[in-house]
Each structure stands twice: as structure tokens, then as C-alpha cells.
Amino acid sequence: MNEFIVWDEKQKKFIQPSREIVMTTKDGLLKGINGGNGFVEQWKPFSYIGKTDINNKKIYADCSILEFKMYGTKSVVSVKGYFYWSCEKLRYKFMSLVVDNYPRKEKNIEWNRAIGQRFKIIDTIQENKLGLI
């Protein structure tokens, strides 16, 4: 089974479901029984991509906003963005949001070297404390 977390919209926080997952809806939401109190909740799941950041925190697709430095032959570039699953490529790809303080929204800048970088989780898409989304 794949590891995942869910965003609890009511509590505005991430939870790791310890409850029984009842079913998946057509729109990809999960339904589960919340802590034995008998009512069903809906959650959006976020998959663990199998990597951790420099602080050993797990990185989740479409969720964890990351920062890393990419070293070129002539310069060092600071990059912020997140991973998402590409059904077309059948692998995780990186969507950059900011490169050296220049917004790159809605542009998929794919670096094959991104996978080997030392990431630091700085925010989540759901919380958006830094206003990057």
C-alpha cells in the first residue's frame, strides 16, 4: 500500500489517517470514518514520493513546497516548487514556482538533476504561508 497523508479542510491541518478508509470517490477523494464517532469525512490524499528533505521530513506530491540550489557551470540558482505525478511520463516531475526570485508560475521547468538535490521543505500548497501559490 502507498503511504500518504490527507488535508483535513475543517481543522486546516494534515493528518495521517489511522481510521478505516471506506471508499474512493470519482473525484479522487477518500472517505473515512473519523475516530469511531460514526460520521464519514472526505479527504484529499497526497502521496509520499519516497524522498525526504535535508531535515528528514517526508516529501509529498502536490503538497510539499521545496527549495533547493541548482549548481550550473557558471552560476548557482535558487529554485522553489513542488513535485507532481505525470500520468503521461509515469513519474514525478518538478513544477517550479520561483527561480532566483522571478515567478515562473504555470511553467513546468523539468530538470533531471532536480531528483538528486538537497531539498528543504519551506511550505505546503494547502497552507501557503509564503504566498507562493
Rank of each mutant, 00 (worst) to 15 (best):
M1Y: 13
N2M: 12
E3F: 14
E3S: 12
F4W: 07
I5N: 00
I5C: 01
I5Q: 03
W7V: 06
D8M: 08
E9V: 12
E9W: 09
K10R: 14
K12L: 13
F14E: 06
Q16K: 14
Q16F: 13
P17S: 08
P17I: 07
S18Q: 15
S18P: 01
R19N: 10
R19H: 12
R19D: 13
E20G: 11
I21T: 04
V22N: 15
V22T: 12
T24L: 12
T25L: 08
T25P: 03
K26Y: 10
D27V: 09
L29V: 09
G32E: 07
N37S: 13
N37I: 14
G38R: 00
Q42D: 10
K44H: 06
K44Y: 02
P45M: 08
P45N: 11
F46K: 00
S47L: 12
S47W: 05
Y48P: 06
Y48W: 11
Y48K: 01
Y48D: 10
I49W: 03
G50H: 07
K51Y: 10
T52W: 00
I54V: 15
N55K: 03
N55C: 08
N56M: 08
N56G: 09
N56W: 09
I59E: 03
I59T: 03
Y60I: 07
A61V: 00
A61L: 05
D62G: 06
D62H: 10
D62M: 05
C63H: 00
S64G: 03
L66I: 07
L66K: 03
M70V: 10
M70K: 08
Y71A: 14
G72Y: 15
T73K: 13
K74L: 10
S75E: 14
V76W: 00
V77T: 15
S78F: 09
V79F: 04
V79A: 00
K80R: 07
K80Q: 06
K80L: 05
K80E: 06
K80S: 05
G81S: 02
G81F: 01
G81T: 02
G81I: 02
F83T: 01
W85C: 06
W85H: 01
W85D: 04
W85I: 07
S86H: 05
C87L: 11
C87G: 10
C87K: 15
E88S: 14
E88P: 05
K89G: 01
L90R: 13
R91Y: 09
R91Q: 14
Y92S: 01
K93G: 08
K93M: 10
K93W: 03
F94P: 03
L97S: 02
L97A: 01
D100I: 00
Y102M: 12
P103W: 00
R104Y: 08
R104H: 12
E106K: 14
K107I: 11
K107H: 14
N108V: 15
E110T: 08
E110I: 12
E110P: 02
E110R: 11
E110W: 09
W111R: 12
N112P: 08
R113L: 13
R113P: 04
I115H: 13
Q117A: 15
R118H: 13
F119V: 05
K120S: 10
I122L: 01
D123F: 04
T124S: 15
T124D: 01
T124V: 09
T124M: 07
I125H: 01
Q126M: 07
Q126L: 05
E127T: 09
N128I: 01
N128V: 03
K129E: 07
L130T: 04
L130S: 05
L130D: 04
L132T: 06
L132P: 04
I133N: 11
I133L: 04
I133T: 10
